[in-house]
Amino acid sequence: MTGDSAVRKKILLTCILFLFWVIFTATLALYDLVLGAVSSALVAVLTVALLGRALDPRITPMVLLRLPVFMVRLIWEIVKANYDVAKIILNPRLPIDPRIVEYRTYLPDDLPRTVFSDSITLTPGTVTVELTGDMLNVHCLCPYHQEGLAGLERLVAWLFGVKKEGPARGAQETAFAAEGGAGSLTAGRPERGGEV
C-alpha cells in the first residue's frame, strides 16, 4: 500500500517538474523534451523524500476544482482592501486606531491555517503577525476591520471542505493514515515544533 503511493508520488512529481521544465526552457524541440523528461525523473526519484512533502494528501482534486472560485473571491477581497487602505492613507487626518487582536481558528491542519493567515494579510485592514498552533495574532488598522475575519475563515473552510467542529473529515483522515501517520491531526505538529 505504501509502496504504491510512493510510486504514484514519484510519477506526479515527475509530471510537475517536467511541466516547469517545458515552461522555463520555452521550446518544444525533441532533444530538450527528452533531456527534461530524463532529468525531471532523476530529480523526482532522488528528492521524493524532500519534495514529496509538498504533495500534501489534503490537496485533493476537489480543492483544485474549488481553487479558481477561491482565487476570484480573494482577488475581489484584495481590490476592496486596496480601496480601503487608499482611503486611509490619502486622508490627511490618518484615521487609524491600530490594535493587535487574538483570534482562535477552528481550521485543523497547518496547510489550511497557512492559507488562512496569508489570506488575512491580503484582506482589508488586517495583517497576521503571529501564528502559533490555532492562535493567530492579527494586527488591525481600525477596530471594525476584524469583523471580516469570520467570513474569510468560512471561505477557507469551504475551500478545504472542513466542517466546523464536525467529524466530517473521514475520507481525508484515512488517506492521511495510509501514509503511515497514526494520529493524522497531530502528525505534522512535532516536526513543525522541531523546526522552530
Binding site: I78, V79, A81, N82, V85, A86, I89, L94, I96, P98, I100, T121, L122, G125, V127, V129, H139, L141
Partner: peptide
Amino acid sequence: RMPDVFTRLHPSTKCDTL
C-alpha cells in the same frame, strides 16, 4: 506616512501586491 512598523506593513503588503 504611517507611524510604526506594524502599520507600515499594511500599505506595503497590500498595495505592492496589487
